[in-house]
Amino acid sequence: MEFGPHLMLAVLEGAVTAAVLSLTAVGLSLVFGVMRVVNVAHGEFFMLGAVLAWWIAGAFGGHAALGFLAALVVAPLAVGAMAVLADIVILKRIGYDPERTIVATIGLLYILQQVTLMSYGPEARPVAAPFNTRLALPWVEWGEAGPALYWPWGLSITSYKLAVIGAAVAVLVGVWAVMTRTRIGLVMRATQLDRDMALAFGIPVERVYALVFGFGAALAALAAVLIVPISQAHYLMGGDPLLLSFIVVIIGGLGSLPGTVVAALLIGLSDGVISVFFSPTLAKILATLLVALVLVFRPQGLFGARAA
């Protein structure tokens, strides 16, 4: 393949990564923004989403789309409920102290991961995509008779991958609408701006916290259900999304939703392009160091306006 089509393929793969990453990172960012705590177990909620999707899809007979659709609805709800429970049982009792929350969620990370290992096992398992047509893509070539379309061999994408991108955009618009257009979003934003004032106005802050924690986890689970037909469900799959979400949330400015989405696009696309053309390990090292330095020298993030 020539450079042009190759780059287009890399961008398309990157867009799928970016779509899934933005959902996961928005979940993390929401929790950080409203509750001011870092949820280290976020990657495990992602993993649980994928594992539950495999389980639910297997429980349904018939057409693959039926099981997948059920997973798409049930898995995020179940994971969200689990997160709400974790919030009530653990985080609420330590008063959302930032440092103790990190230690507790590290513990939660190991609990979720290892219980999955014990019940689901160490295998990576696939989930069938509801539809999976391969679409060949054209590329423009300037020949002697002016520009002409042709279909280079290997330049293609599946309909499912396009649907993932579409679904992610739809969900992000939905999150934006909830945050800016509904009463519950208003309550969340009020809690984020000033917790004590919100409490004084009669907002049940602790219930809002539990809800936000569950909502954030549900977004991660939803992202995982979307990606699981492309990759596979595995008990260690939570590590990479966690690290990448961290990177995205920091670059985008801790707690800023639009910044998070822009950063997810940036990181997802560059991840796709870099790992096609360069060594993925080197790319990861550079990205990690870059993020650490951003946090050191610009703690408000690249897009954040005020100090975190």
């Binding site: 653990i90 009792r93 330590i94 507790a104 590290i106 513990g107 219980v115 290992l117």
Partner: peptide, 20 residues
């Protein structure tokens, strides 16, 4: 069990909750 890190997780959570 091979999932011995489960113990580490449970101990971490219990410590933050009851015995900082």
């Amino acid at each position: 069990t091979t999932a011995y890190m489960l113990i580490a997780g449970v101990v971490l959570v219990l410590l933050t909750l009851f015995a900082p």
